[in-house]
Amino acid sequence: MWTFIHKLGSPKWFYVISARLLPWFWAAAAVLIVVGSIWGLAFAPADYQQGNSFRIIYVHVPAAFLAQSIFVAMAVSGLIFMVWKIKIADMAAAMMAPLGAAMTFIALFSGAVWGVPTWGTWWMWDARLTSMLILLFLYVGVIALRGAFSSRDSASRAASVLALVGVINIPIIKYSVDWWYTLHQPATFSVTSRPAMPLEMWMPLLIMVLGFYCFFIALTLTRTRSEILRREATKHWVRELAGEGR
Protein backbone atom coordinates (compact mmCIF):
# COMPACT_ATOMS: atom_id res chain seq x y z
CA MET A 1 0.00 0.00 0.00
CA TRP A 2 2.62 2.53 1.12
CA THR A 3 5.04 1.53 -1.58
CA PHE A 4 2.28 2.14 -4.11
CA ILE A 5 1.70 5.65 -2.75
CA HIS A 6 5.43 6.34 -2.73
CA LYS A 7 5.63 5.16 -6.30
CA LEU A 8 2.72 7.38 -7.25
CA GLY A 9 4.60 10.34 -5.79
CA SER A 10 7.45 9.91 -8.23
CA PRO A 11 6.81 11.60 -11.57
CA LYS A 12 8.06 8.67 -13.57
CA TRP A 13 5.76 6.13 -11.94
CA PHE A 14 2.85 8.49 -12.00
CA TYR A 15 3.42 8.87 -15.70
CA VAL A 16 3.41 5.10 -16.21
CA ILE A 17 0.42 4.34 -13.94
CA SER A 18 -1.71 7.20 -15.23
CA ALA A 19 -1.17 5.98 -18.80
CA ARG A 20 -2.99 2.78 -17.84
CA LEU A 21 -5.91 4.59 -16.12
CA LEU A 22 -6.31 7.39 -18.59
CA PRO A 23 -8.23 5.63 -21.44
CA TRP A 24 -10.80 4.33 -18.95
CA PHE A 25 -11.53 7.77 -17.55
CA TRP A 26 -11.77 9.36 -20.98
CA ALA A 27 -14.08 6.59 -22.17
CA ALA A 28 -16.26 6.79 -19.08
CA ALA A 29 -16.46 10.58 -19.39
CA ALA A 30 -17.43 10.41 -23.06
CA VAL A 31 -20.06 7.68 -22.59
CA LEU A 32 -21.61 9.26 -19.48
CA ILE A 33 -21.76 12.77 -20.91
CA VAL A 34 -23.18 11.62 -24.25
CA VAL A 35 -25.79 9.36 -22.60
CA GLY A 36 -26.64 11.97 -19.97
CA SER A 37 -27.00 14.78 -22.52
CA ILE A 38 -29.21 12.81 -24.88
CA TRP A 39 -31.35 11.44 -22.07
CA GLY A 40 -31.60 14.78 -20.31
CA LEU A 41 -32.16 16.96 -23.35
CA ALA A 42 -34.39 14.69 -25.42
CA PHE A 43 -36.11 12.09 -23.25
CA ALA A 44 -36.49 13.50 -19.74
CA PRO A 45 -40.00 14.95 -19.23
CA ALA A 46 -40.42 18.72 -19.28
CA ASP A 47 -40.87 20.47 -15.95
CA TYR A 48 -44.50 21.32 -15.17
CA GLN A 49 -43.59 24.87 -14.11
CA GLN A 50 -40.47 25.75 -16.06
CA GLY A 51 -41.15 23.80 -19.24
CA ASN A 52 -38.11 22.91 -21.29
CA SER A 53 -35.93 25.65 -19.86
CA PHE A 54 -35.19 23.51 -16.82
CA ARG A 55 -33.01 21.29 -19.03
CA ILE A 56 -30.12 23.69 -18.52
CA ILE A 57 -29.83 22.02 -15.13
CA TYR A 58 -27.97 19.18 -16.85
CA VAL A 59 -25.05 21.52 -17.45
CA HIS A 60 -25.55 23.98 -14.62
CA VAL A 61 -25.55 21.57 -11.67
CA PRO A 62 -22.60 19.37 -12.72
CA ALA A 63 -20.53 22.49 -13.47
CA ALA A 64 -21.40 23.98 -10.08
CA PHE A 65 -20.49 20.69 -8.37
CA LEU A 66 -17.13 20.58 -10.12
CA ALA A 67 -16.45 24.25 -9.45
CA GLN A 68 -16.60 23.60 -5.71
CA SER A 69 -14.99 20.15 -5.73
CA ILE A 70 -12.03 21.30 -7.78
CA PHE A 71 -11.23 24.03 -5.28
CA VAL A 72 -11.24 21.48 -2.47
CA ALA A 73 -9.14 19.10 -4.57
CA MET A 74 -6.73 21.95 -5.28
CA ALA A 75 -6.43 22.80 -1.59
CA VAL A 76 -5.89 19.14 -0.65
CA SER A 77 -3.19 18.86 -3.34
CA GLY A 78 -1.65 22.04 -1.97
CA LEU A 79 -1.63 20.59 1.54
CA ILE A 80 -0.03 17.36 0.30
CA PHE A 81 2.58 19.44 -1.51
CA MET A 82 3.29 21.62 1.54
CA VAL A 83 3.49 18.73 4.00
CA TRP A 84 5.15 15.93 2.04
CA LYS A 85 6.79 17.96 -0.75
CA ILE A 86 5.28 15.71 -3.40
CA LYS A 87 5.79 17.58 -6.64
CA ILE A 88 3.05 15.68 -8.47
CA ALA A 89 0.47 17.16 -6.10
CA ASP A 90 1.54 20.68 -7.02
CA MET A 91 1.53 19.91 -10.73
CA ALA A 92 -2.00 18.53 -10.42
CA ALA A 93 -3.10 21.60 -8.43
CA ALA A 94 -1.63 23.93 -11.05
CA MET A 95 -3.40 22.03 -13.83
CA MET A 96 -6.73 21.93 -11.99
CA ALA A 97 -7.02 25.66 -11.36
CA PRO A 98 -7.94 26.84 -14.89
CA LEU A 99 -10.49 24.03 -15.25
CA GLY A 100 -12.04 24.98 -11.93
CA ALA A 101 -12.26 28.61 -12.98
CA ALA A 102 -13.81 27.57 -16.29
CA MET A 103 -16.39 25.39 -14.50
CA THR A 104 -17.26 28.25 -12.16
CA PHE A 105 -17.74 30.51 -15.14
CA ILE A 106 -19.91 27.91 -16.90
CA ALA A 107 -22.04 27.51 -13.77
CA LEU A 108 -22.46 31.29 -13.52
CA PHE A 109 -23.17 31.72 -17.20
CA SER A 110 -25.65 28.86 -17.45
CA GLY A 111 -27.28 30.17 -14.28
CA ALA A 112 -27.64 33.60 -15.89
CA VAL A 113 -29.14 32.07 -19.04
CA TRP A 114 -31.49 30.00 -16.88
CA GLY A 115 -32.43 33.08 -14.90
CA VAL A 116 -33.99 34.82 -17.90
CA PRO A 117 -36.97 32.45 -18.37
CA THR A 118 -37.43 31.64 -14.67
CA TRP A 119 -36.68 34.88 -12.82
CA GLY A 120 -37.00 37.28 -15.74
CA THR A 121 -33.50 38.67 -15.21
CA TRP A 122 -29.92 37.78 -16.06
CA TRP A 123 -28.52 38.42 -12.65
CA MET A 124 -29.82 38.33 -9.10
CA TRP A 125 -27.80 39.25 -6.04
CA ASP A 126 -28.75 36.04 -4.42
CA ALA A 127 -26.62 34.11 -1.96
CA ARG A 128 -25.47 31.28 -4.14
CA LEU A 129 -24.88 33.35 -7.25
CA THR A 130 -22.81 35.74 -5.19
CA SER A 131 -20.76 33.02 -3.55
CA MET A 132 -20.15 31.43 -6.95
CA LEU A 133 -18.86 34.79 -8.14
CA ILE A 134 -16.58 34.98 -5.10
CA LEU A 135 -15.35 31.48 -5.92
CA LEU A 136 -14.48 32.67 -9.42
CA PHE A 137 -12.47 35.54 -7.92
CA LEU A 138 -10.70 33.10 -5.61
CA TYR A 139 -9.73 30.95 -8.58
CA VAL A 140 -8.48 34.00 -10.45
CA GLY A 141 -6.47 35.01 -7.38
CA VAL A 142 -4.78 31.60 -7.11
CA ILE A 143 -3.97 31.54 -10.83
CA ALA A 144 -2.70 35.14 -10.78
CA LEU A 145 -0.55 34.55 -7.71
CA ARG A 146 1.04 31.49 -9.28
CA GLY A 147 1.79 33.50 -12.38
CA ALA A 148 3.27 36.44 -10.48
CA PHE A 149 6.29 34.61 -9.04
CA SER A 150 9.38 34.11 -11.13
CA SER A 151 10.61 31.11 -9.15
CA ARG A 152 8.46 28.05 -9.65
CA ASP A 153 8.98 26.71 -6.14
CA SER A 154 7.80 29.95 -4.52
CA ALA A 155 4.86 30.10 -6.91
CA SER A 156 3.84 26.56 -5.98
CA ARG A 157 4.03 27.15 -2.27
CA ALA A 158 2.31 30.53 -2.41
CA ALA A 159 -0.53 29.11 -4.51
CA SER A 160 -0.86 26.21 -2.06
CA VAL A 161 -1.15 28.56 0.92
CA LEU A 162 -3.71 30.70 -0.87
CA ALA A 163 -5.74 27.65 -1.92
CA LEU A 164 -5.77 26.48 1.70
CA VAL A 165 -6.81 29.92 2.91
CA GLY A 166 -9.46 30.10 0.19
CA VAL A 167 -10.93 26.72 0.99
CA ILE A 168 -12.51 28.20 4.10
CA ASN A 169 -14.74 29.96 1.60
CA ILE A 170 -16.27 26.65 0.52
CA PRO A 171 -18.27 26.09 3.74
CA ILE A 172 -19.38 29.71 3.48
CA ILE A 173 -20.77 28.89 0.05
CA LYS A 174 -22.50 25.84 1.46
CA TYR A 175 -24.09 27.72 4.34
CA SER A 176 -24.75 30.96 2.51
CA VAL A 177 -28.13 29.52 1.55
CA ASP A 178 -29.07 29.64 5.23
CA TRP A 179 -27.36 32.94 5.91
CA TRP A 180 -29.20 35.15 3.54
CA TYR A 181 -32.73 35.32 2.37
CA THR A 182 -32.46 33.81 -1.04
CA LEU A 183 -34.39 33.72 -4.27
CA HIS A 184 -32.46 30.76 -5.49
CA GLN A 185 -34.17 27.40 -5.15
CA PRO A 186 -32.73 25.13 -2.47
CA ALA A 187 -29.97 22.72 -3.43
CA THR A 188 -31.08 20.24 -6.07
CA PHE A 189 -29.14 17.32 -4.71
CA SER A 190 -29.03 16.23 -1.14
CA VAL A 191 -27.19 13.24 0.22
CA THR A 192 -29.46 12.78 3.22
CA SER A 193 -32.94 13.38 1.83
CA ARG A 194 -34.73 11.95 -1.16
CA PRO A 195 -34.54 14.09 -4.28
CA ALA A 196 -37.60 16.22 -4.96
CA MET A 197 -37.32 15.54 -8.67
CA PRO A 198 -38.91 12.51 -10.32
CA LEU A 199 -36.54 9.71 -11.18
CA GLU A 200 -36.70 10.30 -14.95
CA MET A 201 -35.35 13.81 -14.45
CA TRP A 202 -32.94 12.91 -11.72
CA MET A 203 -31.17 9.96 -13.32
CA PRO A 204 -29.76 11.88 -16.31
CA LEU A 205 -28.55 14.53 -13.91
CA LEU A 206 -26.71 11.94 -11.84
CA ILE A 207 -25.17 10.53 -15.02
CA MET A 208 -24.09 14.01 -16.12
CA VAL A 209 -22.53 14.73 -12.72
CA LEU A 210 -20.58 11.46 -12.85
CA GLY A 211 -19.60 12.21 -16.44
CA PHE A 212 -18.31 15.66 -15.48
CA TYR A 213 -16.25 14.19 -12.64
CA CYS A 214 -14.74 11.57 -14.97
CA PHE A 215 -13.97 14.35 -17.45
CA PHE A 216 -12.28 16.36 -14.70
CA ILE A 217 -10.14 13.40 -13.62
CA ALA A 218 -9.24 12.49 -17.19
CA LEU A 219 -8.35 16.05 -18.16
CA THR A 220 -6.33 16.62 -14.99
CA LEU A 221 -4.40 13.40 -15.52
CA THR A 222 -3.69 14.29 -19.14
CA ARG A 223 -2.58 17.81 -18.29
CA THR A 224 -0.50 16.62 -15.34
CA ARG A 225 1.25 14.15 -17.64
CA SER A 226 2.22 16.92 -20.04
CA GLU A 227 3.33 19.07 -17.10
CA ILE A 228 5.53 16.21 -15.86
CA LEU A 229 7.21 16.03 -19.25
CA ARG A 230 7.64 19.81 -19.28
CA ARG A 231 9.13 20.09 -15.80
CA GLU A 232 11.20 16.91 -16.00
CA ALA A 233 12.39 17.56 -19.53
CA THR A 234 16.02 17.27 -18.51
CA LYS A 235 15.59 13.96 -16.68
CA HIS A 236 17.02 10.81 -18.18
CA TRP A 237 13.76 8.87 -18.42
CA VAL A 238 11.98 11.66 -20.25
CA ARG A 239 14.79 11.93 -22.77
CA GLU A 240 14.67 8.19 -23.25
CA LEU A 241 10.92 8.43 -23.79
CA ALA A 242 11.34 11.20 -26.33
CA GLY A 243 14.12 9.29 -28.08
CA GLU A 244 11.95 6.22 -28.41
CA GLY A 245 9.03 8.22 -29.69
CA ARG A 246 11.06 9.53 -32.60
Binding site: F137, V140, G141, A144, N169, I172
Partner: peptide, 13 residues
Protein backbone atom coordinates in the same frame (compact mmCIF):
# COMPACT_ATOMS: atom_id res chain seq x y z
CA UNK B 1 -3.22 45.13 -7.40
CA UNK B 2 -2.63 41.42 -6.92
CA UNK B 3 -2.91 41.94 -3.17
CA UNK B 4 -6.42 43.37 -3.48
CA UNK B 5 -7.38 40.57 -5.86
CA UNK B 6 -6.29 37.98 -3.28
CA UNK B 7 -7.69 39.65 -0.21
CA UNK B 8 -11.01 41.22 -1.22
CA UNK B 9 -12.90 37.94 -1.79
CA UNK B 10 -11.85 36.81 1.67
CA UNK B 11 -13.17 40.06 3.17
CA UNK B 12 -16.74 39.44 2.10
CA UNK B 13 -17.99 37.49 5.16
Amino acid sequence: VLLSLLVLPLYIP
